[in-house]
């Protein structure tokens, strides 16, 4: 396992070198995205509200920001669960040319396949540490805040060594949690045994 300081926009080489379990710190331009925004774009067929340019780091998050002295002040930040965006995952990677998604809970098989095809990775935090992160983030702007509400609106962020995050989906089709699953599956059998749950146990079917 290695640690990488990546600077966006990310190149193909920046992400193909990453393996599950590697630690990543992010710098450069990013934007936030949640389901209301993806429904607005993909299901309601609205125009993307800003020029993405080469901004290819997407963060699944709903920040808290307040207006102070005519500027946005970031109050709190934590990546949020990505699995609920699975419906739009592959399409987001393809149409928005994403190289990296930062979130939580990984994503499903369709997104994993698109990550493999288009060279994109998913990373997650291994802590809940908003206060160790907020000084690494500057707010550049926000779009559709009135229309979608503050947390569902896409925010443009400038990152400075934001991390640490762990690579949980690489672009070779590997998922970190599949590895944890194997350990947990073995330990589960031991837990059953310690708790007196027989290997032959079956629930009585009530309905």
């Amino acid at each position: 396992m290695s640690a990488y300081y990546l600077e966006g926009p990310l190149s193909e080489a920046d992400v193909t070198k990453l393996n599950i379990g590697d630690v990543v710190y992010l710098s450069g331009s990013a934007f936030t995205c949640r389901s209301r925004f993806q429904r607005y774009i993909f299901d309601e067929n609205n125009k993307f509200p800003f020029d993405l340019g080469d901004r290819n780091i997407l963060i699944h998050t709903g920040i808290i920001a307040i207006r102070e002295n005519n500027k946005w002040k970031l109050v709190s930040f934590m990546p949020t669960s990505s699995i609920r965006f699975e419906k739009w995952g592959a399409r987001s990677i393809e149409e928005w040319n994403l190289r990296l998604i930062c979130g939580k809970t990984t994503m499903g098989p369709k997104t994993a396949e698109m990550m493999r095809k288009r060279k994109c990775v998913h990373i997650s935090p291994h802590s809940v540490s908003p206060n160790l992160w907020i000084d690494s983030i500057q707010i550049e702007g926000v779009h559709l805040r009135e229309e979608l509400g503050s947390i569902e609106a896409p925010w443009l962020l400038k990152l400075d060594k934001l991390g640490p995050f762990v690579v949980d989906m690489d672009c070779k089709g590997n998922n970190l949690y599949d590895e944890v699953d194997k350990t947990v599956a073995i330990n589960k059998q031991k837990a059953y045994s310690n708790l007196g749950i027989s290997p032959e146990f079956e629930y009585t079917k009530l309905y």
Partner: peptide, 9 residues
């Protein structure tokens, strides 16, 4: 004893 750990890592 399951080995799940913080944030499932």
């Amino acid at each position: 004893r399951l080995g799940i750990g913080i944030m499932g890592i």
